[in-house]
Design a protein around this nucleic acid. Structure first.
Length: 593
DNA sequence: ATGAACACTTAGTACCACACTT
DNA sequence: AAGTGTGGTACTAAGTGTTCAT
């Protein structure tokens, strides 16, 4: 019943594309963008119906023959204590369980959940032996891997059923996929980088913690048997379906729609339209911040230098963070004196600023940049009489900066520069790198290089894959083998040509053609492998996905595909095509960012 | 004016299914 | 049939920026 309703909605949608390629520019006004009537300001939907979150499975106690040992002796733990012990036991071969902060945080939180008796006994983590529990879970995961095809199929069907039931909602008559419909299971918190809270206990989310958001007249989701929701509200000015407060940072978590949804798609489109508007005023803004480098007001100078960094280097804004609550990371406005070094001259360049700091996710930003002289002089001044740990821009905050930007352009904030510079860089690089005569593989290499230029600009890194060295060697071996084949084919061709010279007969001529074809094919294969190797090497430490998904206006890529006859599937996989459905619908080959 | 709360986007990693070898 | 490499995805942390409360 539910299914039939849903599929009929889907069917209808196919005949009425959700994203109509009209009226991208504000000045073309007056047309209806979407099928639905326009909503009041701030209203996100008129109908929202869903099943509520899918809760993490309850804890299953360990079998009786799996023991926890304290001080060498087996100790039967209470259910709650045992559950938390399993969280730690599962992580045993991770490096972070060796860190003191992790251990202390874990042990503290663990003890809080123990019975009085357990608290009395278990006083020293070093005396805890989780190895049997650890082994139990290793074996269990092995066993799951070893399951037969049929058994795996059955598990998958069960997962699909859950997805089908809980993974979708109805929003304004459309069945939309939900992004994260499951509550996060309990476990030990893992922050990124040097996180002061690593190892703390992340508690189980109960229905009593969850706020449901839906429309009044919809079927209100039922909490699990014997439970109640914390609250049911009907707030159509927000897009989330459910929320709860997590206990580590005391912040809210939300259940929201999948990026393929219309709601998210429109928002994404809007984001790129704002960035495109920046294109029209960016020269003016640049002229202005250059002028402000000489402002009488220190505040303005700091603002202007910071903005220069954000624009030129695509730095993040850098909000203030509560000290001691998170890893020590910074962005532009929160840079400290210790994060930059000034070199009047370095490697033949003048006025070089050497950046070295940890940014979002504790990813290191290291860069040596030659800056314009007034910037250099200003920086010197900002650093004067300060300790290394002092703020570089002590008179500036993201709030001040964004207020200033808002005056320069409606909707302009610091992050728009990142979007703008990423997208414009892709467009320029594609223009510069694409050779229309290349085959598809060659064009894709160009695309990847353009994408890579953006990823480098935005400092999107990844750890070098564990298998990198090995797979590179394998690829090299393939290349060598292919080279060998090419040489052989060359020789064979030469032989065939010699024979033809001698005999001049048709059979020999046909043989020459055959050998030529073979050689050509082999050479193409070799070229392809070489391209692969280059791409792989250049890419080993760079993550392309983040910029592709969040910073590059998809219409640039789609236009490029159309212009150069590259199938869109080569650039975007299925999920990405769903996310960028709006762009695929509207962009033609003439699209300019 | 300020800071906390809130809502939303952006981010890297672990893992797994699957294709491809061996 | 097992090993292996890889793309895709799930997961959830960590940012940004606005709004709310005082």
């Amino acid at each position: 019943m539910y299914r039939r309703l849903a599929s009929s909605l889907l069917g209808r949608r196919v005949r009425h594309p959700r994203f109509t390629p009209v009226c991208l520019r504000q000045d073309s006004g007056g047309c209806d963008r979407w099928e639905e009537e326009k909503k009041e300001d701030g209203v996100k939907w008129t109908q929202l119906e869903h099943r509520g979150p899918y809760f993490a499975p309850l804890y299953e106690p360990l079998p009786d023959d799996v023991h926890f040992y304290y001080d060498g002796k087996p100790l039967k733990l209470s259910l709650a204590t045992e559950e938390i012990a399993t969280f730690y036991a599962k992580m045993l071969d991770h490096e972070y369980t060796t860190k003191e902060i992790f251990q202390n945080n874990f042990f503290n939180d663990w003890r809080k959940e123990m019975t009085l008796m357990e608290q009395k006994i278990i006083t020293d983590l070093d005396k805890c032996d989780f190895s049997e529990i650890h082994k139990y879970f290793v074996d269990k995961s092995e066993a799951r891997k070893a399951l037969s095809k049929e058994e795996k199929q059955k598990l998958k069907e069960e997962a699909d059923k859950i997805q089908e039931e809980y993974g979708y909602c109805i929003l304004d008559g459309h069945r939309e996929k939900i992004g994260n419909f499951k509550t996060e299971p309990p476990g030990l918190f893992r922050g990124r980088g040097d996180h002061p809270k690593m190892g703390m206990l992340k508690k189980r989310i109960m229905p009593e913690d969850v706020i449901i958001n839906c429309s009044k007249n919809s079927k209100i989701p039922k909490p699990p048997e014997g439970h109640k929701w914390k609250e049911v509200r009907f707030d159509n000015t927000v897009t989330w379906l459910a929320s709860w407060t997590e206990n580590i940072q005391n912040t809210l978590k939300y259940i929201m729609l999948n990026p393929s949804s219309k709601l998210k798609g429109e928002k994404d489109w809007h984001k790129y339209e704002v960035a495109r508007r920046l294109k029209d005023v960016v020269q003016k803004i640049r002229a202005q911040y250059r002028a402000d480098w000489k402002s009488k007001e220190m505040k303005n100078r700091q603002r202007a230098v910071a903005l220069y960094f954000i624009d030129k280097l695509a730095l993040r804004a850098g909000n203030e963070k509560e000290e001691g609550e998170t890893a020590d990371t910074v962005g532009c406005c929160s840079l400290r004196v210790e994060h930059i070094k000034l070199h009047r001259e370095l490697d033949g360049q003048e006025h070089v600023v050497e950046f070295d700091f940890l940014g979002k996710d504790s990813i290191r930003y290291y860069n040596k940049v030659s800056v314009e002289k007034p910037v250099f002089k200003n920086l010197k001044m900002f650093m004067k009489n300060k300790d290394p740990a002092d703020d570089l821009f002590d008179q500036l905050s993201t709030c001040i900066l964004n207020k200033h930007l808002q005056k320069l352009m409606d909707g302009l904030t610091a992050k728009v520069f990142r979007t703008y510079n990423a997208s414009i860089t892709l467009q320029e690089q594609l223009k510069a790198l694409t050779n229309p005569d290349d085959n598809v593989a060659g064009k894709l290499l160009s695309y990847n290089r353009a994408n890579r230029a953006v990823a480098i600009l935005c400092n999107h890194q990844r750890s070098i894959p564990k298998t990198f060295e090995k797979s590179m060697q394998n690829l090299q071996a393939k290349i060598d083998a292919k080279k060998q084949q090419v040489e052989e084919a060359k020789q064979e061709l030469k032989n065939a040509e010699d024979e033809f010279k001698d005999t001049k007969d048709d059979k020999a001529k046909a043989n020459v053609e055959k050998k030529k074809k073979l050689l050509k094919r082999l050479e193409e294969q070799l070229a392809k492998l070489n391209v692969q190797a280059t791409d792989k090497e250049e890419n080993k430490q760079i993550a392309l996905g983040t910029s592709k998904l969040n910073y590059l206006d998809p219409r640039i890529s789609i236009a490029w595909c159309k212009k150069f006859g590259v199938p869109i599937e080569k650039i975007y996989n299925k999920t990405q095509r769903e996310k960028f459905a709006w762009a695929i619908d509207m962009a033609d080959e003439d699209f300019e960012f």
